[in-house]
Structures are given as structure tokens and as C-alpha cells.
Amino acid sequence: MVSLDQLKEEVKKALSSGKVKYFIGYENIGSGWQVRPAFIRQPEDVDRLVWTPACFHNLVRFLHDEKRRRAREKNPDIRPVGLVVKGCDSRSINVLLQEKYIERNDVYIIGVSCELTGVINITKLNQHLNGLKPQKVLFGSKGTFKVIVDDREIEIEAPDILADRCLECPANFPVIADVILGEEIKRNPGNRYQSISAYEKMALDERWSFWQQQFSRCLRCYACRSVCPMCYCDECVADSIAYAVTAETTADEKAQKTRWVERNPELSENIFYHLVRAIHLAGRCVDCGECERVCPVEIPLRLLNKKMEKEAKELFGYEVGFDPAQPPLIACFRDNDPQDFIR
């Protein structure tokens, strides 16, 4: 079991020794059971920290903000930022290291093991509770969750309410960390590509009508992009203007900016945006599932990323995020990469 006291102790140590600039963990929202990312700047604030099955957020994403802040400031504080990471999150740190977006000493990592559980899926929890409102959702013992409802404790087997991505997770233990909490317990992930198999089996037209329905309700709020630990481009093809504009940029350059995607939320543009995102995440997505969780109209974005993950594995034997020294998927090749589709 991950001990919260130990987590607080470690954070306190890191903050009071001045080893880290600030620490990002999780705290409860109000008095409820849901959590949000918490920025801990003072050692005495560590008591805000929690570790519960509702800690979905991939905090690695906040390293982009830190990097941009450093670029803006004249004399930036270059001490590392502390982070709590789960297995999946730790793999996204590896990808950022692999792409040299950050350096190892930019981040101080406290890894937590998901052991036999992981994070929950709220829809599944609500279905399980059948209308009851949870007051607290906690880790139970031996692969269960403990849900407190009406001051009564309900024990739920982890697989019943685990998020899909956790059911298919290949690494429930941090692969890179300075401090690790919890035990390394091997868990059989089952079929890692379970969630996409039904869609792969569909006939072409069926698949199209499925995706057409999904994409047509996209609002282009870009929450999927904003929450993604891998979406750190300063300028995204989906933006109608260039952020990289400076005082030196000429009017001509501004006018010549290629507009790949128009701003209208019609199907063609929505598809374009999501295709670009999917292909850009191929070999980079660690399946932290955040894009899908935050989508207000629940577009099943994991299905896209998972497909790319599967193809990378099957075609090129590529696993994402286990080795920071490995080259990025599309920046390397093997002589015998499959080419039966090429005429």
C-alpha cells in the first residue's frame, strides 16, 4: 500500500531542503472525493496532499508550463519541479526525456505504484453505485476499492470500476523515479488492446459511421490537446494564428501561414484535427487516458491512440516510454520494416 504519510514526508523533505522549486501533487476538491492537481509551495502545505483512486490527472503536463515560464523569465529558478507520478505518467516523462524537451534534473519524481489497482472510471463507479452518491473513494486492501456511501463502507473489486486504460496498462509501476512508494506487484494486463478490438473487427462503413458520429460532435475546445503531456508544440496546426509570431515576423510571413485546419467545427475540420493529433501521438502516447476523460462530449479518443500504439508495437516492435534513450518512433527505422502495402 502506498502510504500517504510517507508521501507527505518525502514532499516535505524535498521542499524544506530546497531541492525542489515547488511540488505538484493531488488535493481534494472541497470536502468531496474528487481531486485536482495541487501546487505545494511551502513544506507546511503538504497536508493538502492526498492519494486516492481519483488521482487521474497526468501531472507531467504541467512541466510544459514550467518550461515556458523559464523561457520567459530573465533569471529563472532552475531547480527541479517535484511531481507525483503513476506508472503511465512516469512513461510520459520518459518520452519527454527521449525528445529532449526536458532534462532529467528538471524534474524530481516521486513515483507511486498502482499495485493491483489504478484509477477509477467515474461512469463505471456511478453505475456500480446505482444512484448512490459516494462520499469518499479510497484504496482498499488487495486489489479493491473502498467506497464510503452514506457512512457505510462498500468494497468493490478493482476491475469492476477501474478505468479502461488501467485494465490494459502494461506498467502499473513507475519506470523512472527518484523515490518510489508502494510495492512493485506484477499485474496481468490481459489483452492490452481489448478496447479497440471490437472496432477493428467492424466493416469499413460501420467504422466510418461510428467515427463520423463521434467527430461530428467535437466542439474543438481543445481540452484533449491542453491536457495532453505530449502536446507541447508552441504552435499547433489547429490554431488559426501563429503563436511563434514576434516583433520581427513580417506581415508577409504572417499572411503566408498555412491554415491546415479552418476554425469551423464542421466534420471535415474536426476529423483533420483529430487525425493530426492521433498521428502526432503515434509512438508518443503512453495511454494515460486524460484526453478521453476530459472530453465534455466524450469522444472516445483513446481508441485512436490505442490503435496507433498497437500498430507501433506490431509493425515496428516499438514500446512507448520504457527507455528514455530510445529514439522516437518516426525518427528511426529498421531495414526490414514492413512494406507489403507499397506497390
Binding site: E200, D205, A278, M308
Partner: peptide, 19 residues
């Protein structure tokens, strides 16, 4: 070689969406 790898993914993706 890079093209082969990258466009193999594109092809898989497009077909997955239903093209």
C-alpha cells in the same frame, strides 16, 4: 525509410477511421 514507417501508420489510421 522514414516515409515508409510514417506513412504505414497514416494508412492504418485512415483505414481505422473508415477510409
Amino acid at each position: 525509410y522514414y516515409a515508409r514507417r510514417r506513412l504505414a501508420l497514416v494508412k492504418k489510421l485512415l483505414e481505422y477511421i473508415g477510409l
